[in-house]
């Protein structure tokens, strides 16, 4: 089993490296470069050339890739071209913010959706099952900003329970942070719950047609005993991977939410970078997102291997 896990981790690292190449290549083909963006349209070709040389943009792409890649391995993501600040210093607090919000939402969403999924499976076809299904379908069917504004309208404007702006500062205490970011966390929870809930319900129910489930019923166990003890452990692998996908989404896919709630996360930073043609910033953000995504999925795969009794207890 250790070998299987090791192979999975190595594959994760290879994937991450391949993504780094893609990120670099993709930013290369963006039209225009940082030199023309900064100097504006009036710049003469000569001044552009000088400026590019100054920024090191006139060297071949593979040299710049290797340099960027090895620096990134050492934790140096370069210097922002536009304001000359060290990217790692700027991005770290923002990444912490993103992780904080994602973790907050995940702590609410994961247990709720798995429990609701199991409840729906136990009561398959009954009112509660349909209600939970329709509700979760509704939350993924409407655009994320819509949920955000509805929450703001009711919970911030009409009843003034939570603030509508979620800008956090390093000086804030933990409780204050939790309070301030409640609305974006709720919005994210609603966005990711549907997948996990439905996957829990479906994979539990798909196990229900197995002969050992019939056996469990013939042993005279109750439906909830059968589901929790006999179906759930065997349904764990697909549930884990969907949870990982959604956790990754919480980290990398929240740009719109950050904008709506004016939350200082990595997503907004990356969008700024793209509009200013600040390639090192875009690459750094891309790399961090890829790392989070690949990392979470690798963890999920390793867990899925570990819950398999055949691999955990070989003959």
């Amino acid at each position: 089993m250790l070998k299987t896990i090791a192979i999975r981790i190595v594959l994760g690292i290879i994937t991450l490296w391949a993504v780094s190449v893609l990120i670099f290549a993709a930013t290369e083909v963006l039209p225009g470069d940082v030199a023309s963006a900064i100097l504006g349209q009036g710049a003469t070709p000569e001044t552009l050339a000088v400026f590019r040389h100054e920024l090191g943009l006139d060297r071949p792409a593979y040299v710049r890739y290797l340099e960027w890649f090895f620096n990134a391995l050492h934790g140096d993501l370069g210097i922002a071209m536009t304001n000359k600040r060290v990217i790692v210093e700027v991005i770290t607090p923002r990444f912490m913010n993103t992780l904080f919000l994602a973790g907050y939402a995940a702590l609410i969403a994961v247990p709720t959706s798995v429990v609701l999924g199991i409840i729906a499976a136990i009561n398959e076809g009954k009112f509660i099952d349909r209600f939970v299904n329709i509700l979760s379908l509704m939350t993924i069917s409407v655009p994320e900003f819509f949920i955000a504004y509805v929450l703001i309208l009711y919970l911030a404007v009409q009843f003034e329970i939570f603030p509508s702006l979620s800008t956090v500062f390093p000086e804030m205490g933990f409780a204050e942070k939790i309070y301030t970011t409640a609305l974006p966390a709720f919005t994210l929870t609603m966005l990711v719950m549907a997948h996990m809930l439905r996957m829990t319900r479906t994979s539990v129910l798909s196990i229900m047609s197995q002969p050992y489930i019939e056996m469990a019923f013939l042993k005279g166990l109750t439906r909830s005993q059968v589901i929790v003890r006999h179906a759930l452990p065997n349904a764990a692998a697909p549930i884990i991977s969907v949870i990982a996908l959604n956790l990754a989404y919480l980290i990398v896919g929240v740009v719109v939410i950050e904008v709506v709630f004016v939350y200082p996360g990595v997503g907004q930073f990356m969008v700024d970078g793209v509009t200013k043609r600040d390639l090192p910033v875009v690459q750094a953000c891309g790399l961090i997102f890829a790392g989070a995504f690949v990392g979470l999925n690798t963890v999920a795969d390793v867990l899925a291997i570990m819950v398999n009794p055949r691999l955990r207890h070989p003959r």
Partner: peptide, 22 residues
């Protein structure tokens, strides 16, 4: 449910499929 297993019990054809692998 109470009578199943207690009063009358079942032995299935495929033990491999009827035991929970977990």
């Amino acid at each position: 449910r109470e009578r199943r297993g207690q009063r009358i019990a079942y032995i299935a054809q495929s033990a491999a499929a009827s035991f929970n692998p977990a």
